[in-house]
């Protein structure tokens, strides 16, 4: 099942823009716990929800989601 992990940067994008979990959930029309599960990597969104999250942050979907872990900021790569 580990091959089905989808990594995301939702918490980073949210913190960077000062958006609360509840505000993001309201904008996406989901329960605020769903945002929490997404951030913890315990739930992989549908393509529709993934695209809506990317649209909300105004970034391409691959900036938010990846099949491989994101490089840490300042890791030099």
């Amino acid at each position: 099942m580990s091959s089905e992990i989808v990594y995301n940067r939702i918490s980073m994008l949210r913190a960077e823009r000062g958006i609360s979990r509840k505000d993001l959930a309201t904008a996406l029309g989901v329960h605020y716990q769903t945002v929490g599960y997404l951030e913890r990597g315990e739930y992989s969104p549908s393509l529709f929800l993934a695209l809506r999250i990317a649209e909300y942050f105004e970034v391409p979907v691959e900036v938010v989601f990846s099949l491989t872990p994101f490089a840490r900021l300042g890791s030099g790569s």
Partner: peptide
């Protein structure tokens, strides 16, 4: 469980 099995599916989000 926030009512996940207590309300019809149309009131839940995709995870629920």
């Amino acid at each position: 469980t926030r009512g996940v099995t207590a309300v019809p599916a149309q009131y839940l989000d995709e995870r629920q």
